[in-house]
Nucleic acid binder design. Structure first.
Lengths: 334, 334
DNA sequence: CTTATCTGTGAGAGCGCTCTCACGACGTGA
DNA sequence: TCACGTCGTGAGAGCGCTCTCACAGATAAG
């Protein structure tokens, strides 16, 4: 880092032949400044390449709120998984016209110290926690430093009373499974999400419930981690266990995509031989051949609601949790 | 915003019965503090929910560098376009283990005042500018406030001497077009990118050059804006002008994807009737049916190089521009 | 012409923190 | 016993800024 001292307001003022106070007024567009003084200061700012020192300013006049979006997942993942991209996009869009700053705190599960340091660093006034895992310790830190926070995705049992938004994952899982059942499928497997995430557990629970109500066996379960790579692997195992498989519910679109690819790679027709349903209704769902039948989980709605809740929280008011509805989006894969 | 005063170090010290200096030492893990004092301060911090005031701290000890990633595109776009996602992901990944903070300054083209305010706000020590348009004014602002910056994508003619990284878009465009020519295609059209962006202009130039060298007419040009939506529209126009079209070079994968969909929707076989080549080698290229032949433009390499260059710049050294090579990725669409 | 009202400006306090410096309480070696 | 560290601690300056307050000069009202 260069040690060159940056020009201060004092320098600007001296060069313009006015006091620091007047220079400050010009910078802050205070109308009560004579035009000659104003111009001198402006010229001085330009010549010196002056930029106000944010730290000094916010020390006096606490500046605009900034909120952290906390994502305990690997960086690559956060930006390549359409779920996170959609969440981030919606958060930024929602706050586009507000002065609120958005800071991204991303760190892989193993590096939770990084997020903790960040949170404790005093950078932010509030947090939105996305994709939170059991025992990632984030809620403990947040509680300890008393930072207002909203969770996207229902927190785990231990963290009761925390404000969150979520989609109705159980119903969503049922909807997806029912679609397969209604289509006449009987040997239906599921590629479930990670069970240390509530969304993973709930979607699986939905599948179980629908299967149970239809009097079908709920033994065909394999686990992935919501990424594309994990879907294909899980399908292979499903197929080994049950060659007569005729339907698959994948707990994320990305996993569903690779399930379809794996199936097609083996010469198995989708949906002729095996029907596939995904979850999320992300952009990729329209790009597959055949287009993917999936469950709309309004990612955008999650993000928008979370932002609204956090802003309410920052105003000092209490908020309840919110559950958004899910909806089946029928396409051709099931 | 709640007006409740946050606990200061003074409060912590008072409660622990020590001086502010000692409390500060504890917070900063200074070893020369007695264990009893240390414990008292820690307890006090916990009780009060104390978080250091970042502004006050950095006023004294200028804190870690923070760099802005400037993207003059609509928020939705930035997070849904795989090109930007990949760039952002690579930047965050590259800086994952450094203390450097990354701030995202995104604003649609019409709102350049927002980015300008941001840049002038003194939040950052450097900038990486992605997707820069002619006349977006960003380089003027950067020059004026003397902020070190690196461009991803070659800046326009007016901005000579600025450090940048880019891929060899002209050669890339030629590679893509040559693939079509080598495949026996003769009526080859292109869905070009926006011509106020260098990457759009250069890829088109590459197409022109390859067509010219092969003695083919370079009249079939329609323009998109790199997004999926624009690709289908452009294709329709191409098809109206030339029903015997047998090859298309789309200047982005996203446009190529919707070109393929539009083609297939009309019962035209890809690549049987019309061959299609994209650009970027983004994730979607593998998901289409048939998989998309495209040009690898090492988005990750762009981002990583830009970060390295900016860090060098921040150390006070000069940097040259860097051009990364492109490579054809043959798949089934051409 | 005096008194009240603006208008533009400067002096100076103070935001919460870090860090230098000084100091008292202990050893420790002569 | 005295000079000399060493260690833990506190007092206080100062980072760059904003903002209150006071005040000089111009203008309006009595």
């Amino acid at each position: 880092m260069p040690t060159k001292r940056l020009p201060t307001l004092e320098d600007v003022a001296a060069r313009a032949g006015v006091s620091r106070a007047t220079a400050s007024r010009v910078v802050n567009a205070d109308p009560r400044v004579g035009s000659s003084a104003r111009e001198a200061v402006h010229a001085s700012i330009r010549d010196l390449g002056y930029r106000p020192n944010r730290a000094a300013r916010s020390l006096v006049r606490p500046d605009v709120a900034s909120i952290a979006v906390v994502v305990p997942e690997a960086e690559e993942r956060v930006f390549s998984d359409p779920f996170f991209s959609a969440i981030l996009g919606a958060i930024y869009t929602k706050l586009a016209d507000s002065p609120v700053q958005v800071l991204l705190a991303v760190a892989p599960p193993g590096r939770r110290d990084k997020i903790e340091r960040y949170l404790r660093g005093g950078y932010t006034d509030g947090a939105i926690v996305v994709s939170h895992h059991r025992d990632d310790g984030i809620s403990d830190v947040l509680r300890e430093i008393q930072l207002p926070a909203v969770y996207i995705g229902r927190p785990h049992a231990g963290d009761v009373g925390l404000p969150y938004v979520d989609v109705d994952n159980v119903t969503g899982g049922m909807l997806a499974t029912q679609r397969l059942i209604d289509g006449g499928r009987r040997r239906i497997g599921t590629v479930a999400g990670p069970q240390d995430m509530v969304s993973g557990a709930d979607r699986l629970a939905g599948w179980r419930r629908a299967m149970g109500q239809a009097g079908l066996a709920d033994d065909l379960v394999e686990y992935g981690d919501f990424t594309a790579a994990s879907g294909g692997v899980a399908l292979q195992q499903l197929l080994e266990r049950e060659p007569n498989l005729d339907g698959v519910f994948a707990a994320s679109d990305l996993m569903a995509v690779s399930v379809i690819q794996e199936l097609q790679g083996r010469g198995i027709d989708v949906p002729g031989d095996v029907a596939v349903v995904g979850f999320d209704d992300s952009q990729v769902a329209e790009l597959t051949r055949p287009p993917l039948t999936t469950v709309l989980s309004t990612t955008t709605g999650l993000a928008r609601t979370a932002v609204e809740m956090l802003l309410t929280l920052l105003e000092g008011q209490q908020v309840e949790h919110v559950i958004l509805p899910t909806e089946l989006v029928p396409r051709d894969s099931a």
